[in-house]
């Protein structure tokens, strides 16, 4: 057992864990934060996406012990106690989900993606690597979100929701 001090959604938690416990299992099974989903458990589907210091990661491939002291944000932290996050509302408005199993990961991933895009990070479809701020086209959204699978196939709605939210944020 190792003592792991996690900081999740702004709260500290000290857990005694075997070192093989993933961040995903620590969140779900030890802290009761079941909003983060376990899909493939091998880094292929993105359902377990959370933010670590604002960067999106696959929590299934993260050992909890490696993330001690990092600021972890899950869908519960993004939603808060009020009416939810505006990106969640955009997903609902645009039919960005059907069964909803991938949605927590999609939302966390999209928030991390928009931060990456805002910081000028290029993607595999960015035409000019050194240009400042590639426009967030639908192709860019699709490429940057490709680590999140949706087996219901709600991709068009997901892209619509992210585009709508990003445009509203840009106007603020």
């Amino acid at each position: 057992m190792v003592e792991v001090r996690l900081r999740v959604n702004g709260a500290d938690a000290s857990l005694d864990l075997p070192p093989q416990v993933s961040l995903l299992d620590a969140l779900r099974e030890r802290l009761g934060l079941t909003g983060t989903k376990k899909g493939c458990d091998q880094g292929a589907c993105g359902a377990c996406t959370v933010l670590a210091d604002g960067e999106r990661i696959n929590s299934c491939l993260a050992l909890a012990v490696q993330y001690a002291g990092r600021e972890i944000t899950t869908i519960e932290g993004i939603a808060g106690d009020g009416p939810g996050h505006p990106l969640q509302a955009a997903f609902v408005r645009n039919d960005g989900l059907q069964c909803g199993y991938c949605t927590s990961g999609q939302i966390c991933s999209a928030i991390g993606m928009l931060a990456e895009h805002g910081a000028g990070m290029p993607s595999a479809v960015t035409e000019h690597l050194c240009a400042d701020g590639a426009e967030l086209t639908d192709d860019e959204i699709r490429e940057r979100m490709s680590g999140n699978l949706c087996r219901c196939g709600a991709y068009n709605g997901i892209v619509d929701a992210i585009r709508e939210f990003a445009a509203a944020e840009a106007e603020r």
Binding site: G43, R56, S109, G112, E116, P122, A124, S146, G147
Partner: peptide
């Protein structure tokens, strides 16, 4: 690098 894996994996 950008052609490989996903953004989540590249962050890790």
């Amino acid at each position: 690098v950008l052609a490989g894996a996903s953004a989540q994996l590249r962050n890790m």
